[in-house]
């Protein structure tokens, strides 16, 4: 193993090598996150990560910060508790399409509705990778998975728009092909004092690729690139021409009162109390 790169200090080196498959987009996204964190001038020491279950949710386990690897779909509810208990923490959630759009769909829209200050990076590979290639709520219509041997007949979720509609103050979608835009979106999400959702459409050559005649990472990357349509261009296209396309850009970027600030404001204005932090360690309160 090499001595690493400039991001190695942020990693739990004693956990390497990682479990991700060759050609997986997770490494690209981790590196994009760390670049964005530096650009946003965040203090890494103050970051806590929360994740659910799935390949994407293993990312926090490789980062040298406090990390909570929770139950399937529930990362956002744990993150809501963590952020509310200590609003000084910068809480980042790594999740996937199965984790946050299927089993955790309810928590996703409610966290967005509350506009709680979390930065959610949803790694959307259109498939369940960890369990071996079943279709997910974002699998394109007609794509194949082990549970859709004759082609997926279900309509996929448009996650970035769903979350924007639910009330998130920042929502964007990019792919692992537009690295610079992705980095800027994560940076904007980290700086946004509210619920930020960054959907990253990524390649899973091992399962999605194998089932859909895109076996190599390159084939998947080329397909991602060819299917990408920028939001402005998409607004001029007909709905049927957009089928199967990945529309990238910002879907929400606005300001609203934030959830934990609202809680503290009520305590302060009505009762002159600040929200306590680390109170479990006190004998007398």
């Amino acid at each position: 193993m090499s001595d690493g790169n400039k991001f190695t200090p942020y990693m739990r080196k004693d956990r390497l090598p990682h479990i991700f498959c060759p050609g997986c987009g997770n490494g690209t996204i981790m590196s994009a996150f760390l670049k964005a964190m530096e650009k946003a001038e965040m203090d890494f020491e103050n970051i806590a990560m929360v994740s659910g279950i799935g390949c994407s949710s293993r990312i926090p386990g490789y980062m040298d910060c406090d990390s909570l690897h929770t139950t399937h779909g529930r990362a956002l509810s744990f993150a809501t508790g963590l952020k509310t208990a200590n609003k000084d923490l910068d809480v980042v959630v790594f999740t996937g399409d199965g984790d946050c759009a299927s089993i955790g769909g309810n928590h996703l829209i409610h966290a967005a509705r509350r506009n709680i200050n979390l930065t959610v990076i949803c790694i959307n590979n259109n498939i369940y990778g960890m369990t071996g290639g079943q279709i997910s709520p974002t699998s394109p219509k007609g794509s194949y998975g082990t549970t859709a041997p004759y082609g997926n007949q279900d309509n996929p979720f448009n996650l970035a728009e769903l979350v924007a509609a639910a009330g998130a103050t920042y929502s964007a979608r990019w792919t692992t092909i537009q690295i610079e835009s992705l980095v800027m979106a994560i940076k904007d999400g980290l700086k946004n004092p509210g619920f930020s959702f960054i959907e990253v459409v990524t390649q899973c050559p091992t399962y999605y690729g194998r089932k859909n005649k895109l076996r190599t990472p390159t084939a998947m990357a080329v397909t991602l690139k060819m299917n990408t349509v920028f939001k402005d261009a998409a607004s001029r296209m007909r709905q049927k021409d957009l089928e199967g396309k990945i529309v990238v850009g910002e879907f929400a970027n606005t300001q609203k009162a934030e959830f934990t600030e609202n809680i503290e404001r009520i305590s302060e204005e009505k009762f002159g109390k600040k929200t306590l932090i680390n109170s479990a360690y006190e004998e007398e309160l």
């Binding site: 929770t70 139950t71 744990f78 809501t80 963590l82 952020k83 509310t84 200590n86 109170s279 479990a280």
Partner: peptide, 12 residues
């Protein structure tokens, strides 16, 4: 989930 998160956040 939230109370487990809250507990790791340092709050009973």
């Amino acid at each position: 989930g939230a109370i487990i998160g809250g507990s790791w956040g340092g709050t009973k």
